[in-house]
């Protein structure tokens, strides 16, 4: 069937419900949040309408700069770890049988869909003194007595990598599964070993994909709101945790909103960058 331009009003009716829902329940809430970020805090209720930039001015403290710096550093670290583990893994996965791929994809999706609460709980159990992995080390004679491995930075990092790894693999999967296998075969006939061919042919061919994936995982990790709280100490809290904390426990909705707007700007800038990288890849 030809795609046609809509001619009459009736042709637009399918857009009515989706458009209405998305505008009323996404655009309006989003705008409300931006508006609230300029309002004043009202400890008794949610907020008082006003126009102040105090909420944004609070970003200029060393405390906030510290949180922002830590959030970005943590997200970068998670992104780099995930992509380094996931890229060769996904590549090898695409070389396996369809059945094996399907099995892995089902498993990865199951882990990816897990609530952050459950991931946090599972890792806190794994790193606990009574039920943790150190019990296994004791049993193997590697340690004298079991210890708690949390709250630590390592625990936060492990939990976040766990959360982001399936995402990373699933983001990389389409690009790697579509990679022209003759590219690699050509390299092999020219005398490259499989490992050499992987690093000399596959990796450079997908350089832009890797960069785009790094950015996407970075944004994904930036959104982690519970793991730093469950597995770390308050100094390991990220911007996302802080927003939740301000909105719920400190009841300071305007400040939370201002931080959220700031986080949106960072994320949007990075998503924009991803699209740009993606476009250049397509242009090649």
């Amino acid at each position: 069937m030809r795609r046609e331009a809509p001619k009459s009003f009736a042709d637009y009716t399918p857009l009515l419900f989706p458009g209405l829902m998305l505008v009323v329940f996404f655009v309006v809430p989003f705008s409300t949040m931006i508006a609230v970020s300029f309002f004043k805090r009202n400890p008794a209720g949610f907020y008082t309408p006003d126009f102040v930039i105090d909420n944004y001015a609070r970003f200029l403290t060393t405390f906030f700069a510290g949180v922002l710096g830590f959030s970005l550093m943590l997200a970068v670290l998670v992104a780099v770890c995930c992509v380094s583990i996931a890229f060769p893994f996904t590549y090898l996965l695409t070389k396996r049988s369809r059945r094996a791929q399907t099995l892995w994809l089902v498993g990865l999706l199951s882990v990816l869909s897990l609530s952050e609460v459950i991931i946090g709980f599972a890792w806190s159990t794994l790193f606990s003194q009574t039920a943790g992995i150190t019990n296994l080390f004791v049993a193997l004679g590697l340690m004298d007595k079991p210890v708690a491995l949390l709250p630590t930075f390592g625990a936060v990092l492990a939990g976040m990598i766990y959360q982001a790894l399936p995402y990373t693999i699933l983001v990389l999967y389409p690009a790697l599964v579509r990679l022209d296998p003759t590219l690699l075969e050509a390299a092999r006939t020219l005398g490259a070993s499989p490992v050499k061919a992987f690093f000399n042919v596959v990796t450079p061919a997908l350089r832009n994909t890797i960069v785009a994936t790094l950015i996407m995982v970075f944004v994904f990790a930036l959104g982690s709101y519970l793991l730093p709280q469950i597995l770390g100490r308050p100094r390991h809290w990220t911007l996302s945790v802080l927003i939740t904390d301000q909105a719920i426990y400190q009841s300071n909705m305007p400040f939370a909103a201002a931080m959220a707007v700031f986080l949106v700007l960072i994320s949007l800038a990075l998503v924009g960058l991803t699209l740009l990288v993606g476009r250049r890849e397509n242009a090649l």
């Binding site: 309006v28 996302s240 909103a257 986080l263 949106v264 994320s267």
Partner: peptide, 18 residues
């Protein structure tokens, strides 16, 4: 889905509260 979930959540919180 692409934005950090906290942001969408906070958007809903402010909206429904308002």
């Amino acid at each position: 889905f692409i934005l950090p979930p906290v942001i969408t959540a906070l958007g809903f919180l402010t909206f429904w509260a308002t």
